[in-house]
Each structure stands twice: as structure tokens, then as C-alpha cells.
């Protein structure tokens, strides 16, 4: 336990601003979500609960805002609905936005964790180490998207979260989290690791489409695409390139064009410089869902 050990560990631990960072090689996991295709059906959320052993907290705790939906479908209504003098019914339905951890490259949650329980991985994920977490909840306080969920209770031992007969439906590849730790979307890291391990043993890289996240797999309209941004042939890399959204920019060049850009790609709260890994495609459809 010397100072050297501290400095060496610390150097590995530190992650620099993505612009100065070493390039991701061979993987950088990223996502793009087409809001035009999203019908707000919540299948992604259900799939996520099943895949990641997320506790179903029940009506009462849901009402207290203690739900654990790693991916949530947000509803946004026209601004004049339900306000005095506004319209009673919207002309079109709610607009939906699936929101999950954006796996930021310069994640605000990572720097503030007192114990270093949340870190950046070499393949561009924002990882959460449950064993290390002490539950200070600073990460969630500093998350601009509020996509971190805290285990307010010991759900595995709480009645009706997973009734006795249902414990066998739990995914054996994913930890069941105990009370007092923070958790969030992992981009289905267990699937990524399995795919990378297979690929490594066969001496190749993971093909595009070889690994899917649970939400992507469940999406009936194919709104979610997921893949390796380093591989220029992957679907997600092509989408990002087509929309001229660049990972290491806090302001996209296309948006600075006079008259604005007609491209649909954007990242949420990009101006705060967390460099999120999820690109959204703006909704252009006029009709109701």
C-alpha cells in the first residue's frame, strides 16, 4: 500500500474528456432511437424488467416514485393541454420518448461517486459496481437525465416483488441487487460480455447484429438500434454518420449551418457536455399514433 500504488491505480481509474481520450478500440457501444417509429407500447420496458431482474415494486411504492424502470417511456403532451384556457384534448396523441442511461462519455455521475463505484469501461459503457456502492446517491443527484434508480428496499426479500414461484424466472446472468445500492441501464452488459467472449475465443470481432439489447429485441417497430460505433459498417454507426452526429462534439456542426439542418439526429442535453452515447431521431410524423 504505497503512494505508488495509489498513483498507478489512480491513473488507470481516471477517464479524460472524450476529445483527448484514447480512441475506443475495438468497441464503442452506442444506440440510436427513432422517435418516429416509437409507438409507446412499453415492450422495451417490460423486456428490460425481465432481462435485468428489475424488481417490480408494486402500486404503493410506484406512487411514491420508487419505481425501478431502467428504461422508461416518457409521455409529452402539447403544452396547452390541461391548463386553464387550453384545450381539453390534444389534436394528436402524446409524444413518447424512451429514456435510459445515456452511457455518457464524460459522465457527470462518475466524477462525484465517493467510492468510485461507477466507472467508464474501455468499450464505452458507464458501469456500476454494486458491491462497491455505499448508497450516497450523489450520482443520481448529478445525473442530468435522472436515469439512475436506487434500491430503496431489500427487494429480493420483499413479498410480492418476485413471488416464491417466480424466482426461477430470474436471469442467472444478472445479479439480484440488495438494498441500498444504485442501479441503472447497463446496455445489457451481460449480453455484450458473452458476445465479446465468444468472438474473442474465435479470434474475431463481434459482428453487427450479433448482440442485441433486450429493449431492442422486444421493440416491435425496430425503433431501437444498437451496435458498435467503431465499426463503420454497423447499422448504428451508419445512422450516426448519416445524421452527422459525432460522439465527441458538444455541439454538432450540422446545427450551426445557417437555417438549421433538416437532419433528425440529436442527443439530449448535449450542451451540458456529458457526450451521451444515445442518438435520438426526431419525430416528424404529424398523425396521431
Amino acid at each position: 500500500m504505497s503512494v505508488n500504488n495509489l498513483l498507478e491505480n489512480w491513473a488507470q481509474f481516471r477517464h479524460f474528456h472524450p476529445v483527448d481520450d484514447k480512441p475506443h478500440d475495438p468497441y464503442k457501444w452506442a444506440m440510436s432511437i427513432d422517435l418516429d417509429a416509437c409507438s409507446g407500447c412499453n415492450a422495451c420496458s417490460v423486456a428490460c424488467y425481465a432481462e435485468n431482474n428489475i424488481p417490480v415494486v408494486g402500486k404503493e411504492k410506484y406512487a411514491h416514485g420508487q419505481a425501478m424502470h431502467w428504461i422508461r417511456i416518457e409521455h409529452y403532451w402539447d403544452e396547452d393541454i390541461g391548463v386553464p384556457g387550453g384545450r381539453e384534448f390534444p389534436e394528436q396523441g402524446a409524444q413518447f420518448l424512451p429514456m435510459m442511461c445515456q452511457q455518457c462519455e464524460a459522465a457527470p455521475c462518475e466524477t462525484v461517486c465517493p467510492v468510485g463505484a461507477t466507472n467508464h469501461t474501455a468499450d464505452g459503457l458507464n458501469s456500476q459496481i454494486y458491491n462497491r456502492c455505499i448508497g450516497s446517491r450523489y450520482c443520481s443527484a448529478n445525473c442530468p437525465y435522472k436515469v439512475r434508480y436506487f434500491n430503496w428496499y431489500d427487494y429480493p426479500t420483499t413479498d410480492n416483488v418476485w413471488p416464491e414461484t417466480m424466482t426461477r424466472q430470474l436471469n442467472p446472468d444478472v445479479t439480484v441487487r440488495s438494498k441500498g445500492v444504485m442501479e441503472k441501464c447497463t446496455f445489457c452488459v451481460q449480453r455484450l460480455n458473452a458476445a465479446m467472449s465468444t468472438a474473442r475465443s474465435e479470434g474475431r470481432k463481434v459482428h453487427d447484429g450479433e448482440v442485441q439489447t433486450a429493449c431492442q429485441q422486444a421493440c416491435p417497430t425496430n425503433a431501437i438500434s444498437f451496435g458498435n460505433l467503431v465499426d463503420p459498417e454497423s447499422r448504428v454507426a451508419k445512422q450516426w454518420a448519416r445524421q452527422q452526429v459525432e460522439l465527441t462534439k458538444d455541439k454538432q456542426t450540422k446545427d450551426a449551418e445557417p437555417g438549421g439542418s433538416r437532419l433528425r439526429g440529436y442527443r439530449i442535453l448535449e450542451e451540458l457536455r456529458p457526450y451521451p452515447s444515445v442518438m435520438y431521431l426526431e419525430r416528424v410524423r404529424e398523425s396521431a399514433v
Partner: peptide, 11 residues
């Protein structure tokens, strides 16, 4: 060889 996160104001 684990250290806390020296960047965190909580530390």
C-alpha cells in the same frame, strides 16, 4: 488496492 474516488466532493 482500492482507493476512494479523489475527484468526488463527498470524499
Amino acid at each position: 488496492g482500492l482507493w476512494p474516488n479523489f475527484q468526488s466532493p463527498l470524499l
